[in-house]
Simulated scan of single mutants.
Amino acid sequence: MEPIDFVIIWVDGNDPKWQAEKRKYEKIDIYEKKDNREIRYRDWDNLQYWFRGVEKFAPWVHKIHFVTWGHIPKWLDITNPKVHIVNHKDIIPNEYLPVFNSNAIELNINKIEGLSEQFVYFNDDMFIVSPMQPTDFFINGLPVTRAILDPNVWDRAIQNYTTTVQMGIINDHFDKKKVIKENFSKWFNVKYGKENLKNVLLYPWSKFTGISTQHLPNPFLKSVLDEVWKEEPTELLQTISHKFRTPFDINQWIFLFWEIVSGRFIVGPVIGKSFEISDNEETNLIIYNTLKAQNYKLMCLNDLVRFSDFEGEKKRLNRAFNSLLPLTSSFERSQ
């Protein structure tokens, strides 16, 4: 079996040195619409459960590349042979540092030294919560994903141009009708169920309007990331020049879209689900019970709201994690 690495990016929003540097650049950043909300950086103190989930449910992982501004969790055992600490300066040119934009950071993950050709990219809110096999991510050397067309629906409130920009890049390099014809069974597949209807209805459009995504870990081929960088360096560097997130950023989805339209993937089932943690205790309880019941292999626990009691909610979530993963992993220092 070819090695499969995991890549995860992490920020310690409580680090005073990081906070001071961030405040310094907030004052001089030119983008009025930058996304610099506190919720982009706050820490739920549950990263240890990400590592416990990997060790218990995906022990076959070859290497974990931990990408960070420079801070490292006090409990993380960096001597573990599976852990590779990656500083932003190791993968991002000096003229663009420091950067507080996760989109800019993830565009550079193919620069990680020693990264395997097959790897899976995680945000730090995406957890493995049930046993997984390498074939959940890769089959015969190809990523397991889905090719489902999507309309690009404009939202005045969000004003996010990312999909428009990225579909423009895809349409510049790929002919939609030719792509679908050459990989017809990957675009119209029984595993998509009712979602095949999207492909049927959107097929008449001559251009790609959008491709469906899930807020879950993505399997990638490093060679595809290298290829996108070769073809579109100017567009990618534009995002990297944004120290904070903006509505005009390109993100890691461009690599997924490129894999899909170039046919370098295997159709697979949905094995995870993304959840929005809210300020509603009853709704969150359902999510936490789903976590403990291991109803999915992968869960994303996303939060984009202000909490009336963030510390209380954090404790409730981590109690749920601890009931599922109570044992210390080899990635944690012995106390």
Results as ranks from 00 to 15, higher is better:
157 A>F: 02
178 K>E: 07
152 N>S: 08
264 R>Y: 05
262 S>C: 13
101 N>C: 11
190 V>I: 01
143 P>R: 02
167 M>G: 05
162 T>Y: 00
28 I>E: 13
3 P>C: 07
244 F>C: 01
266 I>V: 15
138 F>V: 05
201 L>M: 13
188 F>H: 12
322 N>Y: 07
231 E>N: 06
82 K>I: 08
179 V>A: 13
268 G>E: 07
209 T>P: 01
164 T>M: 13
242 H>S: 03
66 F>N: 06
153 V>W: 00
320 A>P: 09
18 W>M: 09
208 F>M: 10
15 D>S: 02
186 K>W: 08
177 K>M: 08
315 K>Q: 14
69 W>N: 12
261 V>L: 13
160 N>W: 03
14 N>Y: 04
325 L>V: 08
143 P>T: 04
90 D>A: 12
256 L>Y: 09
182 E>M: 00
25 Y>K: 02
331 F>C: 01
254 I>M: 03
326 P>F: 13
47 L>H: 05
149 L>H: 01
291 L>N: 00
259 E>W: 10
269 P>D: 15
222 K>F: 02
35 D>Y: 06
77 D>K: 05
78 I>V: 15
187 W>D: 07
247 P>L: 09
47 L>C: 10
231 E>S: 09
318 N>W: 09
77 D>E: 14
10 W>L: 12
281 E>V: 10
109 I>H: 07
3 P>N: 12
30 I>D: 15
329 S>E: 15
215 H>G: 10
198 K>V: 00
184 F>C: 07
18 W>D: 14
109 I>L: 14
79 T>M: 03
109 I>M: 14
144 V>L: 03
99 V>S: 15
280 N>C: 12
329 S>M: 14
180 I>G: 07
253 W>L: 05
178 K>P: 15
156 R>Q: 02
303 D>Y: 14
239 T>H: 13
47 L>V: 04
273 K>A: 12
311 E>K: 08
299 M>L: 12
160 N>T: 00
278 S>M: 13
257 F>P: 11
25 Y>T: 04
